[in-house]
């Protein structure tokens, strides 16, 4: 097997794509259901735990250089107890992969092509992810790099184009129901950001781990910023009450874009989520496969 080496930026980019996309698709509705018009406060409250997890992952990988999560868990906790913990992580990876791929399938069947059976999307995506995993981590990282570079301009464009529909008075009054719902909304965001822990399977292949901690904390801050736009946007456009009843509010905001004769830019949304979900599923599939290989 030839030596795999990716740069730390590539590794963190994998984290960014995988978190952003399922986050926008599946978690923003949940946050809004909990916290309503104060969702942005929930988001800001999640900054500290997000940075904490980013720091933890980076520090662990730096301390046990060249060892993945599977290996250093066993070093820290001893062989059997370590294996148990790894098994919990593995179960989580598995769970996350299934949720995100199902989310994509549901997105397609409910919003894009309702008549196609969901299995088609799931299997096609998994075939693709499997192919990418077989090609190796370097290929995954490079593909993701292209994807992320395409996604960011689309995202910025989308939030700029929806600007005219936004009514920021929808955010008033602030903290109407005190902090209760805001805390409820914070927990899903924290859990979402925690899934960057999957990078602990990738960091051993990073060629230069200097300043990894700083880079990963910056990554978390970028991630927070990438969520500010959609979370506030949805509430600003639809108002808290309407937004709470929507399944894919971020997708619907894209639907409402109008530039001259071009009316519905759904295809951008579809592109965004398909590419992102692909990255995420690939990353988790890779992590699972690698973890199982290292565990037994």
């Amino acid at each position: 097997m030839e030596k795999i080496s990716i740069t730390k930026i590539q590794a963190l980019m994998l984290g960014i794509t995988s978190i952003t996309v399922t986050g926008h698709l599946l978690f923003i509705p949940v946050i809004i259901v909990h916290a309503g018009r104060d969702s942005w406060i929930s988001l800001l409250l999640a900054t500290i735990p997000a940075m904490l997890i980013g720091f933890t992952v980076a520090l662990l990988s730096q301390r046990y250089q060249g060892y993945s999560m599977v290996e250093y868990s066993q070093i820290i906790l001893g062989k059997w107890f370590g294996k148990l913990v790894v098994f919990i992580f593995l179960f989580y990876f598995f769970h996350e992969a299934t949720i995100s791929i199902r989310g994509l399938g549901e997105f397609y069947t409910s919003a894009v092509t309702p008549r196609t059976p969901i299995m088609v999307f799931l299997i096609a995506m998994l075939v693709l992810a499997g192919y990418a995993v077989r090609c190796g981590l370097e290929v995954i990282a490079r593909t993701n790099q292209v994807i992320l570079v395409t996604l960011i301009p689309i995202g910025i464009l989308a939030s700029a184009l929806t600007h005219k529909d936004k009514d920021y008075r929808n955010f008033l009054p602030i903290l109407e129901d005190s902090f209760g719902p805001v805390w409820d909304g914070t927990l899903p965001i924290i859990s979402l950001y925690s899934s960057i822990f999957v990078l602990s399977m990738i960091f051993p292949f990073v060629n230069d781990t200097k300043q990894l901690k700083r880079y990963s904390i910056i990554t978390m801050i970028i991630l927070i910023m990438m969520f500010v736009g959609p979370v506030t946007g949805v509430v600003a456009i639809y108002g808290a009450e309407r937004a709470q009843g929507l399944y894919f509010p971020t997708f619907l905001t894209l639907r409402d874009i109008e530039i001259g004769a071009l009316q519905r830019l759904d295809i951008l949304g579809i592109l965004l989520w398909s590419l992102g979900s692909f990255s995420k599923v690939t990353l988790f599939l890779y992590a699972i496969v690698l973890a199982i290989a290292q565990l037994f």
Binding site: F27, P29, S73, F89, I99, L192, S194
Partner: peptide
């Protein structure tokens, strides 16, 4: 069903696995 699942117990579970457990690992180390 998925949204209900995401709303209710999933966040707690993920936060435990991916935030608390790594922190514990770090502390022990």
């Amino acid at each position: 069903g998925i949204f209900r699942f995401l709303k209710n117990y999933y966040p707690l579970y993920v936060t435990f696995v991916c935030l608390i457990l790594p922190l514990v690992l770090l502390m022990i180390s």
